[in-house]
């Protein structure tokens, strides 16, 4: 049973998601374009690298905000899911398939909006056209990113709901955001070893977004030399993480425990 249409509607009419994942992130893009860019060299390659770095990190954080909203939706609907799996035609696999499809499309929507904001603001600041080199790859990565963050937040939220309680579910909803902020930004400033970037889904996504926008593979330092990251291991890395987390979500959904919203009260 496909619920993706309703899931998309619920998400796309969520004012908080639009404010935090779009307006707030667009504000940061504006800061990157107009305030932080004073020291950027005026060469085309420097401008593209600078613009793309901002874009990749901002999209990663926007997707993690989507993850926070999804985690909250489990806290809100744990009783409804437990009921629907027993007393309706909805199955855990059917529900998961719906939110996989819906989250992929939401990732796409967020990416397209932020892509436009990036190209517009950075193009205006540097008085040049900075369009993505491989839009099709970017669209694919954003679909995958939406699914990855949905699966990550679902796994964390369901673990908390099934074993810890709604209070913990509220906190774990922010884990993807914290990891995205730290690892996404750190990749700009820290020379991570290659194995770490390939193994980290957050850095896989950032790197693929960087490559899709700039057309150049991101690099890591190996001794004194800069080594390019291959897109195949990056893609494999995020695919494996996503598949594993989707599997975990399905197992946890089948055992979802109903919690009452009052339990969510922190104070």
């Amino acid at each position: 049973m496909n619920l993706a249409r309703w899931y998309m509607k619920a998400m796309l009419t969520n004012g908080s998601l639009w404010f935090w994942a779009v307006a707030f992130m667009a504000m940061w893009l504006g800061i990157g374009a107009f305030l932080e860019s004073l020291g950027v060299a005026s060469t085309r390659s420097a401008v593209v690298a600078y613009t793309t770095s901002w874009y990749a990190v901002i999209v990663l954080i926007a997707l993690s905000l989507l993850a926070a909203v999804i985690a909250g939706s489990y806290a809100y609907g744990s009783s409804a899911l437990a009921y629907a799996f027993r007393y309706s035609r909805l199955t855990p696999a059917g529900y998961l398939a719906s939110i996989v499809g819906g989250s992929a499309l939401l990732g796409l929507v967020l990416n397209v909006v932020l892509l436009g904001a990036t190209a517009g603001m950075f193009g205006l600041r540097f008085a040049t056209t900075i369009l993505p080199a491989d839009p099709a790859a970017l669209l694919g990565v954003s679909l995958l990113g939406g699914v990855f963050f949905m699966a990550l937040s679902s796994t964390l939220a369901l673990l908390a709901i099934n074993h810890l309680g709604l209070r913990s579910a509220d906190f774990v909803g922010y884990v993807p955001l914290v990891l995205s902020f730290v690892l996404g930004n750190a990749q700009v400033y820290v020379a991570f070893p290659r194995w770490f970037v390939y193994g980290s889904p957050f850095n896989d996504l950032t790197s693929l977004l960087y490559q899709g926008y700039s057309g150049n593979p991101p690099t890591v330092e190996l001794g004194t030399a800069a080594v390019s990251l291959g897109w195949v291991p990056l893609l494999l890395g995020i695919l494996v993480w996503t598949a594993a987390l989707v599997g975990c979500t399905l197992v946890l959904l089948r055992r979802i425990r109903a919690r009452q919203l009052e339990e969510r009260r922190q104070i």
Partner: peptide, 21 residues
Amino acid sequence: TIRGEPGLSTNLAEVYRLMSL
């Protein structure tokens, strides 16, 4: 162990919070 039995229903609001719609 029950699954997929649509014949039971309730008025408890919490079970209708499947999505914010």
